[in-house]
Amino acid sequence: MAVTVENLKLNFKTMDEFKRFKEYGLEELSMLEEFQIYMVEDHATSPFYGIYYGDKLAARMCLYVKKDGAALLENGPDQYLEIWKLEVLPQYQHKGLGLKLVEFAKSFNLPILTKPKVKSHSFWEKMGFSPLSESSSRLIWNPSASTTQKIS
């Protein structure tokens, strides 16, 4: 089965799918409130990305574009990405869906910042993330290539 990452639409169908995550997922990873805020405020673009397995949303992440990357990394780019939350429903885990979401974020070739949740530190290390600093709980991935894909 071909697996693709999609930008999730801000509509009631997606909101219902997010409710299913709330039922089976971990409270710490809930994105329902963020989704509802974006929907009410009628944003033109959605920071939510997901993977459908068949007709079911199986994995999702919240990916924000942040400014002032130079403050994050010395001589860094103006922009960086932040993966706020990433979740794969239990019945779809160990199928490479989390990896696919992270690879999608990496395809923009910008530094990526995240804060591991729910004992996921080893997952992020496998994805090439390292501590932002010795005292920080946040992790960063820094691209080595120079080609940049712009997202808005």
Score class of each variant (00 low, 15 high):
His43Ser: 12
Phe48Glu: 04
Phe123Asp: 12
Tyr80Ala: 08
Ser144Lys: 10
Leu8Gly: 07
Leu63Tyr: 05
Val65Gln: 10
Val65Lys: 09
Ser122Gln: 12
Thr114Asp: 01
Pro90Met: 04
Glu74Asn: 10
Val40Gly: 04
Gln79Pro: 00
Lys126Leu: 15
Met31Pro: 00
Ala58Glu: 04
Leu26Glu: 09
Gly76Leu: 02
Lys119Asn: 12
Gly50Trp: 06
His94Trp: 09
Glu103Ser: 14
Ile51Ser: 15
Phe104Arg: 12
Lys119His: 10
Ile112Asn: 13
Gln93Lys: 15
Tyr24Lys: 10
Lys56Val: 08
Leu113Ile: 04
Lys13Cys: 03
Asn75Thr: 03
Glu28Gln: 10
Ala70Asn: 11
Tyr24Met: 08
Phe12Gln: 11
Leu81Thr: 02
Ile112Asp: 10
Ile51Phe: 15
Asp78Phe: 01
Lys66Gly: 02
Glu103Leu: 15
Gln93Arg: 15
Gly128Gln: 06
Lys100Val: 03
Lys95Tyr: 14
Gly96Cys: 10
Glu125Gly: 11
Gly128Trp: 06
Glu103His: 15
Asn109Ser: 11
Tyr64Pro: 03
Ala71Tyr: 00
Thr4Trp: 09
Leu101Asn: 10
Ile151Thr: 07
Phe129Ala: 15
Val5Gly: 13
Gln79Leu: 12
Val3Thr: 14
Asp78Thr: 02
Phe18Asp: 01
Glu87Thr: 00
Thr148Arg: 08
Lys85Phe: 05
Ala2Met: 07
Ser137Gly: 07
Leu8Gln: 08
Ser107Ala: 08
Lys119Asp: 14
Leu63His: 03
Ala58Leu: 13
Lys67His: 07
Leu132Ala: 06
Leu86Ala: 12
Trp124Lys: 13
Phe48His: 08
Thr45Lys: 11
Ser152Thr: 13
Phe123Glu: 08
Leu110Trp: 01
Arg20Ser: 06
Lys19Pro: 01
Lys95Val: 00
Ala105Asn: 02
Pro116Met: 14
Asn142Leu: 02
Pro116His: 11
Glu6Met: 11
Pro143His: 06
Phe35Ile: 02
Tyr49Gln: 12
Met127Ile: 13
Lys115Tyr: 10
Glu28Asn: 11
Glu41Ser: 07
Leu81Arg: 03
Tyr52Leu: 06
Glu33Trp: 11
Lys67Gln: 14
Val102Thr: 14
Tyr80Gly: 05
Ile140Met: 00
Lys56Glu: 05
Lys19Ala: 05
Asn142Gln: 04
Pro90Tyr: 08
Phe21Met: 08
His43Leu: 13
Tyr80Phe: 13
Leu110Met: 05
Leu72Asn: 01
Lys66Arg: 09
Phe48Asp: 06
Ala44Glu: 14
Met127Trp: 04
Pro90Ile: 01
Thr14Leu: 09
Ser144Tyr: 02
Ser107Tyr: 02
Asn11Cys: 13
Phe35Asp: 02
Glu74Pro: 00
Ser30Met: 00
Pro90His: 06
Ala71Gln: 03
Pro143Cys: 04
Trp141Pro: 01
Tyr64His: 13
Ser120Pro: 01
Val88Tyr: 04
Lys22Arg: 11
Val118Gln: 14
Glu17Gly: 00
Gln149Asn: 14
Gln79His: 06
Glu23Thr: 07
Pro77His: 07
Lys126His: 15
Glu103Ala: 15
Phe129Met: 14
Tyr49Leu: 12
Ser107Arg: 00
Tyr49Glu: 11
Val102Phe: 03
His94Asn: 15
Ala71Gly: 06
Leu139Glu: 00
Met61Glu: 04
Met39Trp: 09
